[in-house]
Structure formats: C-alpha cells, structure tokens
Design a binder for these strands. Sequence first.
DNA 1: CATTTGATGTTCT
DNA 2: GAACATCAAATGC
Length: 206
Amino acid sequence: MPTVLPRTFYDRDPALVAREMLGMLLLVDDADGTVHRARIVETEAYLGPHDPACHAVVGRTRRTEHLHGPPGRAYVYRIYGMHWCLNAVTLPDGVGSAVLIRAVEPIGILDALWRRRPAARRERDLSNGPGKLCAAYDITGAHDGTSLQRGPIRIARGTVITAANIAVSPRIGITRAADWPLRFFERGNPFVSATPGHFAVTPYTP
DNA sequence: CATTTGATGTTCT
DNA sequence: GAACATCAAATGC
C-alpha cells in the first residue's frame, strides 16, 4: 500500500488536483493504533484569493494560516461552530488555495465509524459529507497544518477514476461564485453527498 | 424520494 | 452583529 503523497499535490491548480484526488486513498491513524482507509469520491476546489468562495479572500488570518502555508499539508477548520472540514493545500506558500474532501467510501472494518457517527442509519451516512467524514475518522483542528505525506492523515495513490466516471457541478453550500463548476465526484457512488436538484451536473471534460 | 428548517459557536466586520 | 465550504429531524410528495 503506497504511503507517499502523490506528486500531483505540489504547486498545481487546485481544480486539477481536485479531479485527480478522486479514487486516491485517505489513510487516518486512529488513537487505538489502527489505520483507517477510504477512497476519496467527492472533492471541491478553492482556487485562491481571487476565488470569492475561498477562505483566502480575507487574507492570512489565524484560522487560514495553514491554508496559506506550503502545499501537501492539511487545512482543517471549524464550520457552523459544530463540524470540521478537511482540505489539502495545493499551491505554494503564500497562496491560499486548497481542495476540500467532501466524501469518502470507507474500506474495511467500520466499527469505529459507526461508534463516532451514532446518527448514521445507512452505511453511506457514515462519510457522505465533509463534516460527517471528519466525525467518522475523528479529524479535528488538531490535524490542522499536519503533513499529508507523513502525518496522522495521509493521502496516497489509489485506483484511478476515468473521466467517463466523473461528473462536475457547482460547489455546495456557498453563496459567492455559486455557479463555478468546481465540485468533482464519482458518478453513481452512493457515498457521494446529495446534489441539490437545481444544480447543473455535467460530464468531466479534461 | 426531495426540500425545508432549526441548532450551533467561531470568525471576521 | 452577520455570515458561515453543515447536519439531522421534520415535513411534503
């Protein structure tokens, strides 16, 4: 099982990275010593200070410190006072841009995930949303700024998802730049979060 | 099945 | 004080 962060992360357009991250593996160390594995099936790109929906628009603040840091690290922030969201930083130090990991498909034993997601009724509800997957894998602000190559959360090569199996839509839950097609997901995968009915969904064209 | 609404508290103005 | 890269429960078909 590869544990090296793919080269694709370094200094690359977050929209390309977001697409290439589909099918990659998310490896998370559990406090009990086990390692959880999951396939990334949904991502969103946040392009940088010129992207009105990106947290970098307000400049470097304490919250966005690691968003503005070097690529290949995690940017984890709290949202709505209750949930955490996990991002992978992609562009060079000083440029705040990242890919939000919105949904994963768990691999292997799910006991720990069910324990941390008591509200989940179906298997897909364990991790079909950015806040849900952070709860399921116990990803918190403690992971903010950690290396995605050598830290407690790692991203590694998995199975490549071909363009024909990828769809694109606007990003979910934002109000600015609400029509930019920067959400990428694996077609038909039940672990992908719900797409609002009025969203334009298009095939992925490289 | 889809859509709406209330909870929650940090961040930035 | 407003906005917020969300979630779960409740409601409408």
